[in-house]
């Protein structure tokens, strides 16, 4: 990635502009996300949960792929968002869009608060601290069962009709439309962020965070900013899941969710805007298909998939494919 910066475009502005241009394949990708409505209307609930996982993976990509902050506790923000949306709804306010915003705000606030600690650490200590905070929060949610419903999950969530018009139906029609729209809007936000000078500074931090301040980019402030944004985005994803399924439980905060998220992102390709989305699609579709045929041993095939991707396409599916494409172009 560093070499790409050096080889293209004459001025930084031109480089950023070239990145910001929408490529045909991107437009094709987003058009394709509408296909499930027409082609597989029976899979819309799955499609909705894939869109949510994709948004969650995108939020991790912002900190991991772009700023080099490896987190094993990102589910903390997902869970905060999910519980916020769920609790607001339980106590009588089931309007989805305002619930979503409240959840994003609270997750962002917690993200901003913890970012002061996060920005001071690197490497293994950082990974373990995020893991530690995530586990502590999960235990806290378990012990505060008067608020969270504990291990049985939060009961009594009811999401009102979207915009007062669209009922969240059993087929997942509204759910997918809603999740996809939110994903698309936040994707555009992330895309603009990444293709801005701020995004470039983040990549600089990833490559060498000690040297960045020397060229006038305050590493810690940048890390705090992106960590807050990623937290809010993860909270939005959590709130979406809570609202569209009307369930929240401790699994939304669990280490397993953080780990699965990391697997999805790395599978798709970290440090690429579409990495999380592609990873979420492939992982969740593969799991749905494998577990449909062999509910007892499906994870064997998931394991084979992961090993195959690592050995055949290093740096994730998108990373591997772009390497192959680059080699092909050269010859």
């Amino acid at each position: 990635m560093a070499s790409a910066v050096a080889t293209t475009a004459s001025s930084p502005q031109a480089y950023l502009r070239s990145l910001a241009r929408w490529k045909p394949i991107e437009i094709a990708f987003w058009l394709a996300t509408l296909l499930p409505f027409a082609l597989v209307p029976n899979y819309l609930s799955l499609a909705s949960q894939i869109a949510i996982a994709g948004l969650f993976a995108l939020s991790l990509d912002l900190i991991l792929g772009y700023a080099g902050i490896v987190s094993l506790g990102h589910a903390a923000f997902f869970g905060i968002g999910a519980y916020t949306a769920g609790i607001i709804s339980k106590y009588g306010w089931g309007e989805p869009i305002s619930g979503l915003m409240a959840s994003a705000a609270l997750a962002g606030l917690v993200g901003w608060t913890t970012s002061f600690i996060i920005a001071r650490f690197r490497h293994l200590a950082l990974i373990m601290l995020t893991l530690g905070f995530g586990l502590l929060l999960a235990e806290l949610a378990n012990s505060m069962s008067w608020l969270t419903g504990g291990v049985d999950g939060l009961q009594g969530i009811h999401t009102w009709d979207l915009l007062g018009l669209f009922h969240f139906d059993l087929y997942g029609f509204t759910a997918y439309a809603y999740s996809l729209t939110v994903l698309f809007i936040l994707f555009i936000v992330a895309r603009r962020l990444i293709n801005s000078p701020f995004g470039l500074a983040l990549r600089g931090i990833r490559e060498n965070w000690i040297r960045m301040p020397a060229i006038g980019a305050p590493s810690r402030a940048h890390i705090r900013a992106i960590y807050t944004i990623a937290a809010a985005m993860a909270g939005t994803a959590g709130a979406l899941l809570a609202q569209t399924t009307e369930t929240v439980s401790l699994d939304s905060l669990s280490f397993e969710r953080s780990a699965e998220l990391l697997v999805m992102l790395v599978l798709g390709g970290a440090g690429r805007l579409y990495g999380g989305l592609v990873g979420a699609i492939i992982f969740m579709v593969a799991r749905d298909q494998f577990s449909g045929t062999t509910p007892q041993y499906w994870y064997f095939w998931i394991g084979v998939l992961l090993v195959a991707v690592v050995t055949l396409l290093p740096n994730g599916i998108l990373g591997g494919l772009s390497n192959i494409a680059a080699r092909w172009r050269k010859t």
Binding site: L46, G153, S249, D251, P295, Q296
Partner: peptide, 13 residues
């Protein structure tokens, strides 16, 4: 169908 542990959103889906 495999719900894969405690996972209400998946069970519901």
């Amino acid at each position: 169908k495999d719900a894969g542990g405690i996972n209400p959103p998946v069970a519901k889906r």
